[in-house]
Each structure stands twice: as structure tokens, then as C-alpha cells.
């Protein structure tokens, strides 16, 4: 059995004490250890953004972070976005504007978009497109994703 090290990570407000192999990626820790399978894996080169979650309030590609690097940190995943039954405004907007088809990129998109709007609450369409450059979607052509993010921003839904 390979060596394991203890980590303490708070995920969606719940503190977890676990032992992980030092090479365990954060995304696999979330998925396989904690069963939070909303965070997806779409590539092995940090290109697709399907694994995006928040680490201490900032969006990261969780396939590029080791679980041990998140020791002591606060992680938020897609499962932590809604407030009980009430969807997060971005989740609402993606639903309303058909910002998802197969849904595989969606958790990462929403997490990346949430970070983007946190830093820039009133973005232009171009800023949204630039800001989401690290997240790939094959289904939507990005059109409705951009529309959804704009709708959830302070700018509001396009007419």
C-alpha cells in the first residue's frame, strides 16, 4: 500500500479529515473519496475546465491541484452552489437560457462563471467569452452559455 498522508479539507462547508496518497489529485479526492461526482474530468492536460471548482474562493482546475495542496483550504464544488432547493442565480440562468446540453461541462462552466462574475460583476460579452476561455464545451457553441452568464450578471438578460 502506498504511503498516505492526512489532509483536512472543508468542502461545501463540511470539514473532512482523510488520508490520501500524496499524488491524489483534488478532483479524484472530491469524486472518489467524498463521492462528490459533480466535478468532472474531461482531459489530462488542464485544458477543458470540466473539473473547475473553487479553492479558497478562487476558481481552480481541480485536476491540476493535489489534494495535499488543498490541506486546510476551503473548497466549493457545484454541489455547494444551490441554497437548499433554491438554485444559484447562475444555475437558474443556465436553465432558463439553455446553457447546457449534455451537461458534462456545466459544473465547471458554472464554477468558472461564478468566479468571473465575482471579480467582474458587469462584464461585456467579450469579457465573458475571454473569461471562459479555459472551459471547453462541445455542445452549445458557447452561445447560450454566454447568454446565461450575462443574464446572471449585473448587466442582466439581453432583450
Amino acid at each position: 500500500m502506498s504511503r498516505r498522508v492526512p489532509v483536512h479539507i472543508t468542502v461545501n462547508g463540511v470539514e473532512h479529515a482523510s488520508e490520501v496518497e500524496p499524488r491524489t489529485l483534488l478532483v479524484h479526492y472530491l469524486r472518489d473519496e467524498l463521492g462528490l461526482t459533480g466535478t468532472h474530468v474531461g482531459c489530462d492536460t488542464s485544458n477543458c475546465g470540466a473539473c473547475t471548482c473553487h479553492l479558497d474562493g478562487e476558481s481552480v482546475k481541480s485536476c491540476t491541484v493535489l489534494a495535499v495542496q488543498a490541506d486546510g483550504a476551503d473548497v466549493k464544488t457545484i454541489e455547494g452552489m444551490a441554497d437548499g432547493e433554491k438554485l444559484h442565480p447562475l444555475q437558474e440562468a443556465f436553465w432558463e437560457h439553455h446553457g447546457l446540453q449534455c451537461g458534462y461541462c456545466t459544473p465547471g462552466m458554472i464554477m468558472a462563471a461564478a468566479d468571473l462574475l465575482e471579480r467582474n460583476p458587469s462584464p461585456t460579452e467579450e469579457e465573458v467569452r475571454k473569461g471562459l476561455e479555459g472551459n471547453l464545451c462541445r455542445c452549445t457553441g458557447y452561445h447560450n452559455i454566454v447568454k446565461a452568464v450575462m443574464a446572471a450578471s449585473k448587466v442582466g438578460a439581453p432583450a
Partner: peptide, 12 residues
């Protein structure tokens, strides 16, 4: 089909 996919409850 969207609510589960939006909240991380999809099952791939």
C-alpha cells in the same frame, strides 16, 4: 433534464 445536471447530480 436540467435540474440534476445543474446541481452536480448527473450520473455519467
Amino acid at each position: 433534464e436540467d435540474p440534476p445536471l445543474l446541481t452536480g447530480q448527473g450520473r455519467y
